[in-house]
Design a protein around this nucleic acid. Structure first.
Lengths: 215, 215
DNA sequence: CACGTTTGTAGGAAATTCCTACAGCAAAGC
DNA sequence: GCTTTGCTGTAGGAATTTCCTACAAACGTG
């Protein structure tokens, strides 16, 4: 997945603390990510870039003080090597995308996309590549995820359901009449198949497929 | 902390998927929280409440289709027992808060507050109590956190710094010339003292105190 | 049918979490 | 001054988790 072996030096500019925090908590779970700075306004961002020297800048389109695009352009004129990922408020169309790319922005993710898209994009652009993948297939919103669910085997689905409903592994093992080790194996395989790394992703995924533990 | 022993049945209405996801990932880490539904619009929310029967509804003030307050009032007229937590776009003042409380809303958290505030408030109101704590002391933004940092002992700070910079426990033990077990003890104590439960919280905390691993 | 893949099963090593222990020292009292 | 109490540095144990490997039975498909 990740070609580059050095850490991803990340700067995040998001106005609202609540969302900045929760996004950062997610991103910081990846230990390749090194947060070198954050701010809530464009001006602060420009001031800090010099010393923070990020490799990637995630910046919101609508900032309290300025337009994210403007800030990004300023940032790029001073530090052309930064890979900028713009978070847009609205779904992105080809026209807008073209404008962004022309400005030197490497990728755009809309706030209406799942967080996995952001993470995927982030890792993709970190080597300087432009990412335009997401808008080419806007017809299949969660199709990939549905496919992923279908890829689970019967036993895996059972385990996935139980894990998502927070049944302890030991209880699952008991219920299914297998050893804990086996349940762990299922768990591992589920996470690999779905591309997840942590429990909340699985819980949310199962809820959204109406297979959660609606008690 | 949590008086009630049954799970917190949570419904979340946040327009933007990216933020809904990242917030949910955080909230779902708490295993007392049982997500019974989510939507991105007020109308959907009202439609789903009947079957989801949440104990707590977290709802954004500004939704794509409607005003969160209006939706909350509708929801409360049908299901008066739901504890509503409104996420407001702007900092909340006493006047606005009074309006909200009169409408039957249990708490308001602004998007400019840290995520811990949201979580704390969520657990507080789950038993039906009104939460008005956050705006009574708006003068001390991160004072509590600074105090918390000062509460760490010298050795704990060293370990906190190394952990936040993602140094493996074994390396930390080596560097400090103590056993892994000891490092784990420090880690445990750090997390208890700061009230954290997961690594990203510590990383972010250390960054924000300029004690991160600015390589 | 033979060969590659998926599924159900499980074990081992290393790491992590959670809890407990304990000696030394410092501050707080009495 | 002496005792109690609490914090700091140190560490061990048990249970759990993660990560990786293994392997036989079933399955599918040229």
């Amino acid at each position: 997945m990740s070609q580059s072996n050095r850490k991803l030096r990340l700067y995040v500019t998001i106005g609202q603390r609540l969302f900045r925090d929760s996004l950062l908590f997610q991103l910081l779970l990846h230990n390749e990510i090194d947060l070198v700075g954050e701010s809530e306004s464009g001006i602060d961002t420009l001031k800090n870039l010099e010393s923070a020297r990020p490799g990637v800048l995630i910046i919101e389109e609508n900032l309290p003080d300025n337009d994210g695009l403007t800030i990004a352009e300023h940032a790029l004129s001073e530090h052309p090597t930064i890979a900028v990922l713009l978070i847009s408020d609205t779904p992105v169309n080809a026209n807008r995308l073209a404008i962004y790319l022309e400005a030197g922005i490497k990728a755009v993710v809309s706030k209406h996309q799942p967080i996995q898209d952001l993470v995927k994009t982030l890792f993709y652009i970190r080597n300087g590549q432009v990412y335009v993948g997401a808008w080419q297939k806007p017809d299949a919103p969660s199709q990939g995820m549905l496919n992923a669910y279908n890829a689970l085997s019967g036993r895996e689905r059972e385990v996935a359901r139980l894990i998502a409903s927070r049944t302890p592994i030991k209880d699952i093992a008991e219920q299914l009449g297998v050893s804990c080790k086996t349940v762990h194996s299922y768990k591992d395989r589920i996470f690999v198949k779905l591309g997840f790394e942590r429990l909340p992703e699985l819980i949310l995924f199962m809820k959204r497929h109406h297979n959660g533990a609606a008690a």
